[in-house]
Design a binder for these strands. Structure first.
Lengths: 343, 343
DNA sequence: TTGTATGCGTTATCAA
DNA sequence: TTGATAACGCATACAA
């Protein structure tokens, strides 16, 4: 049986209050007393029971992180980036493994597990306009991504439209004119897919290139497999692209694979650009040109905002979007490699 | 303020015990009473406070998963595979981000966070022989990997040696004779690196091929980057391999990248085999030949064992090692692709 | 500086 | 079938 504060108090010949004071770093304790308590703690291998403390204080020191799929490299790397700066531990829950069921989102936001965390960093796939009321939760919440425009919570987002436009303009600057878009969500009006499509179309428009619907490849979930499938669909349609802008790197790598399987050369026949700057793209053949959306800063910012709110920071909902960049690799410019990955 | 059981009881005109009975599905309740309680619960948006329940029962319904790095694809996919079959939620903590500090391992096993989980699935990097006593913990523990041979806990492992031997034999069967090993941990005697090296050497030995130390590439952490670096080291040494057996897929993809950057053709000049069967290898160029260690079964088994122990299953420590297979891709046999990934 | 007593929300014991 | 009440282990007002 694990030792309790009572046991420690008895052993040290003090009251539980004193033990509690020692454990919590209360300053006004006589050194001799503190030493006795610490000795008793060591003797008994005492460890504080976090559950009991949580019940009493109402705080847990744990942050929840809910992402669509941990097996998607972007989210795995995000979780890793996010956990590092967090002093508190992070409870990683998987949300919406079926690709965005609305009921799952409700469960995540209002389920009883919320008692186990002090706050939640949430990357929702299944929410959209009309769900704002769901976000009115009685605990700190930071949203990742663009799904909900006017919710009453902090958002940390990417510059989806601007970055997508810049990526497309970069391809146009290389002389490409038949640029496919991979990852389109037909009918969606908010959300990353819609915003990136907007940026893509805006770039085409500004360059006087007429958008060709046959070049738009649909992919609900943004996996390698769905990227390959969307690419296949575009090619089978006879659309003959000379470039691909994929809405994330997993799609891009899937699309690139499909192109190569069919004997098309990347980048000579078809240039490929992705989005996310995952590590994998530094080692693909060719290496992947991609949008760096500032993942590290997104993670750090989300954790910082949440910590602030848990400490009672009030004020207007924040909207933060770090600057982006384009990392050029061999998938758009022959021989341009970018293998050095961050340690 | 969130409603408590007291509030529900008052509203329904019953005692808290009755509310508790309803919430917990206790059968002997008069239907009319149950309905009144359920109505009150709905009215008040009551949700059970898991912290309080945990304090009282000593169980949380949460399983801990501690892996070296969530950004390594194998562990991300493992976490995802493992979470799916778990009825209980899984608390994913990151362990040993600095690559295996012993103190971190101790903290994971004995720290106060253990109160927050009913049991732990742990993939330790930093433990070895002599640390058995650390594993004598007062809660259910399932270890992944081979680090500790004789600890008093359940293990779910891969058939490291056999699989490594099979992979090497496969390369020998293709006529390769100068097979590099990438991912070696010099001086290690247990652990995946040592076991896979054993299998590699045994295969060479059985084929009458003399091992060449110059073909052994060291890599402490098994990332793409370290794979590329180890490959570079072997090549810079002038060792001229005609094949590479990398101890995991990330290393293999890094090594393959390095080979290609230097103008060596895969598989014509150098064949490459990895280990883990991560999804990424199905889309690389060429696709990666790899050992499928049975990740899904490992995850399922670990969760099943842990659930059993939390329910009080006694008995000898289990040692489970699912069967493995070799998935052939284009990195060893030209034109042999394996793009179809599981949905 | 330290001790006593109370309650956080739930489950379990026992009685009714 | 239901109710009153005592824990679970800790933090904190209030006293000393």
């Amino acid at each position: 049986m694990a030792a309790t504060m009572q046991d420690v108090a008895r052993r040290a010949g003090v009251s539980v209050k004193t033990v509690s004071n020692v454990v919590n770093g209360y300053p006004h304790i006589r050194p001799a007393t503190r030493d006795r308590v610490l000795a008793a703690i060591a003797d008994l291998d005492y460890q504080i029971n976090l559950t009991a403390r949580n019940l009493r204080t109402g705080r847990t020191g744990i942050i929840g992180l809910a992402v669509p799929e941990l097996s998607l490299p972007y989210f795995a790397e995000l979780a890793y980036s996010g956990i590092q700066p967090a002093e508190s531990e992070v409870l990683t829950g998987i949300s919406e493994p079926l690709g965005g069921r609305w009921g799952r989102a409700v469960e995540i936001l209002t389920g009883s597990r919320r008692h186990l965390t002090d706050g939640l960093i949430y990357s929702p796939l299944a929410l959209g306009p009309g769900d704002e009321r769901l976000l009115d939760v009685p605990y700190p919440l930071v949203l990742l991504g663009e799904r909900i425009f006017h919710g009453p919570v902090d958002h940390v987002t990417m510059r989806n439209t601007d970055a997508a436009r810049a990526a497309t303009e970069y391809l146009l600057g290389l002389g490409r004119r038949r640029i496919a878009a991979v990852g389109v969500h037909p009918g969606e009006e908010v959300g990353s897919a819609a915003l990136r499509l907007d940026g893509y179309r805006a770039a085409l428009d500004a360059a006087g290139v007429r958008p060709d619907p046959a070049l738009e490849g649909e992919a609900g979930l943004w996996h390698r497999r769905t990227g390959a499938e969307a690419m296949a669909e575009v090619l089978d349609r006879g659309a003959r692209p000379d470039a691909v802008f994929a809405f994330n790197d997993a799609l891009a790598l899937g699309a690139m694979h499909e192109l190569q399987v069919r004997g098309l050369r990347v980048p000579e026949d078809v240039a490929v650009v992705g989005f996310d700057a995952i590590d994998e793209g530094r080692y693909s053949n060719p290496t992947l040109t991609t949008v760096d959306p500032g993942r590290e800063e997104i993670a750090r910012t989300a954790v910082r905002l949440l910590h602030g709110r848990t400490r009672g920071a009030a004020g207007e909902p924040q909207r933060v979007a770090p600057p982006f960049g384009i990392l050029v690799g061999g998938s758009t410019e022959p021989g341009r490699e970018r293998s050095a990955s961050k340690p």
